[in-house]
Computed example of a mutant assay.
Amino acid sequence: MAVTVARSVLLSELLSRAAGRTVHLVDRERLAAECRRSDQPLYTAYRDVHRRQVTNVANPPTTWRGDRVHYAGGLLPTGEPVRSVGHWNPPGQIEVFQVLAGRVVILVARPDEPDHLSIAEYREGEMCVVPLNAFHLTYSPWQDSVVYNIYSSGGGWPPPDHTRKYDGEAAPPHTLIFTAGQARAEQATVTPEPAQVDRVPLTADGLDLPARLPSLLVDASDEQLRELAATFNTAPAVDRA
């Protein structure tokens, strides 16, 4: 049985990671001043709500995990929404998100084209499939929201250390600003070209997933999880403009 670990992330952690470039912010100094006044909570992550290990023929077992994240809603003083820290997934790791309550915007970038961004809104019940080895970041600009995600060990990649997985490669040099309810990609550092933005959701079409994602790691058979991994790795169901 999985042992759920709850961890809250405050604005101060976002600022500290921005100093190491694993997070990009539009106006770090302004947010730092706000943090000195009130170090507000951004989200609480409940890690390992579900966990499964699935054996594979001629390969190491795959560990599947399910997390639930509760986001505060609203905008920070710079116009950036309440957000996750964001990170790059390892090669071969499957990850799917579903909004359980509220609505969010998820930013996704691929390692071979970090300036080509997917920025799409996902409402309650909708899923986002993160391409293999991609960067992803969740924003909650409107109201409190709850997001559940499943992810795999990638067949041999060890289970993640949640305290260290965000300290890797620098984030893509963009963040989002919201004005009049619309998201705009803002360059957080100087880049040769502005970002190319797709606003088509990265859907789960073609993947055998339940209507409510949290039930997958509880009810699916080992064979179904192996088939999901095979489908995802050979033909990821990602719609792009």
Rank of each mutant, 00 (worst) to 15 (best):
Ser153His: 03
Val218Lys: 07
His70Lys: 00
Glu169Ser: 09
Val9His: 05
Gly125Cys: 09
Gln196Lys: 12
Pro194Phe: 01
Asn89Ile: 00
Pro131Phe: 00
Tyr71Leu: 06
Val147Asn: 01
Arg212Trp: 06
Glu186Trp: 14
Asn149Asp: 14
Gln143Gly: 13
Ala204Met: 03
Asp27Tyr: 10
Asp208Trp: 04
Arg65His: 04
Thr4Trp: 00
Ser84Gln: 03
Asp222Ile: 09
Leu213Trp: 08
Trp142Ala: 12
Asn89Pro: 00
Glu169Trp: 04
Arg212Asn: 06
Leu75Tyr: 11
Thr55Arg: 12
Ala237Glu: 06
Asp27Leu: 08
Asn59Cys: 13
Arg51Leu: 05
Asp39Leu: 09
Arg240Ala: 06
Asn56Ala: 12
His50Gly: 08
Tyr148Lys: 00
Glu34Thr: 08
Val69Lys: 00
Tyr43Thr: 01
Val69His: 00
Pro60Asn: 11
Leu225Gln: 04
Pro159Leu: 10
Val129Ser: 03
Val108Ile: 15
Gly156Lys: 08
Glu169Cys: 03
Phe97Val: 02
Glu227Leu: 13
Cys35Ser: 11
Ser140Asp: 09
Arg21Gln: 12
Pro158His: 13
Leu217Pro: 15
Glu95Lys: 04
Asp161Asn: 14
Ala235Asp: 15
Pro111Ala: 09
Tyr122Glu: 10
Val3His: 13
Gln98Ser: 08
Val9Ser: 08
Thr231Leu: 12
Glu124Gln: 15
Val200Leu: 14
Arg83Trp: 02
Thr189Lys: 10
Trp157Gln: 07
Ser221Ile: 07
Asn233Glu: 13
Ala109Ile: 11
Thr4His: 00
Leu42Ala: 10
Pro81Ala: 15
Pro160Lys: 00
Glu113Leu: 04
Arg68Ile: 04
Gly79Gln: 11
Asp167Trp: 05
Trp64Glu: 02
Thr234Ser: 15
Val104Trp: 02
Gln40Ala: 15
Ala241Gly: 04
Trp64Gly: 02
Val218Asp: 09
Leu132Cys: 13
Ile177Arg: 14
Arg199Met: 02
Gly181Asp: 13
Gly181Asn: 11
Ser8Tyr: 01
Ser145Gln: 07
Thr191Trp: 06
